[in-house]
């Protein structure tokens, strides 16, 4: 479990996050939702250590991430996997080299073991015969899946997805959502997904933290998000004509 306690983040004079308190549970798909510019990505970057919060704590199973000594922080980082918005695959490496890269860096596995692990990870994300291809040769959806495979390589306990559906067509978005749910339940990972895709919010969000202007405005799950009384949340969820029509049916 990941606990976020009173996390505040400033860029210069500007406060981006205001005392965020939330939890991300083990074995569940935990969503961070909100409008563009609300602070979702900054919160996620604070979680994975790309930003250090000025105030508050991020606890990984009780371990305070930002105050850990470097060697322990490194060990904790090996328990994390992250899929970036633009996939962030290394363009100079093949897909297999991308997946085996963390294994090359941190394990003493033989070439055949690494090859087997890469194939297993690619199988998990339904990608076949792409081992020798370079990221530039893949479609957007395939890149996302390859990035998920790389994130799985070191068998992570914590998985982070930054807007996994951005730039994908609805069908591929659904596939990615299914994949995220499957991986979370199969490997019992604590999965944190940063999204503003309404379909993801409704279908995969087991816990949902809604960020509004840097504040945690609402916390719940996909079961009660559509019937919430929170005005700011409703303004976000029912912003589009299609969802406004859905609301009338509820």
């Amino acid at each position: 479990m990941i606990e976020v306690n009173n996390v505040s983040k400033y860029f210069g004079e500007k406060q981006i996050l205001h005392s965020i308190n939330t939890q991300f549970e083990e074995g569940k798909v935990n969503l961070i939702i909100g409008r563009s510019g609300s602070g979702k990505t900054v919160l996620m970057k604070c979680l994975v250590g790309l930003h250090s919060p000025e105030e508050g704590k991020v606890l990984y199973s009780g371990r305070e991430f930002h105050n850990l000594p470097e060697n322990e922080k490194l060990l904790l980082r090996k328990e994390m996997g992250m899929v970036f918005q633009g996939s962030a695959l290394f363009d100079s490496m093949t897909i297999e080299e991308n997946i085996t890269f963390p294994l090359d860096m941190f394990t003493e596995q033989s070439e055949s073991e690494k090859h087997d692990r890469a194939n297993f990870c690619l199988e998990c994300v339904d990608l076949e015969n792409v081992n020798k291809l370079y990221p530039a040769e893949l479609s957007g959806g395939m890149k996302k899946r390859a990035a998920i495979a790389r994130a799985l390589a070191c068998n992570p306990k914590y998985l982070f997805f930054d807007e996994p559906n951005s730039g994908l067509d609805p069908k591929t978005s659904l596939l990615i959502d299914e994949l995220i749910t499957k991986i979370t339940h199969d490997f019992n990972t604590t999965t944190v997904v940063n999204t503003h895709d309404l379909n993801s919010i409704i279908t995969i969000g087991e816990t949902i933290s809604f960020i509004y202007q840097g504040h945690l405005a609402w916390r719940g799950s996909s079961d009660n998000i559509l019937t919430s009384d929170d005005q700011t949340l409703n303004d976000f969820i029912y912003a589009q004509p299609l969802t406004q029509r859905l609301r009338k049916t509820l």
């Binding site: 790309l50 994390m80 970036f84 962030a88 963390p102």
Partner: peptide, 14 residues
């Protein structure tokens, strides 16, 4: 690599 978040990816990996 910085613009396409590959450097961030390395950092997250440790």
């Amino acid at each position: 690599m910085r613009v396409t978040e590959q450097i961030d990816a390395l950092e997250v990996m440790g």
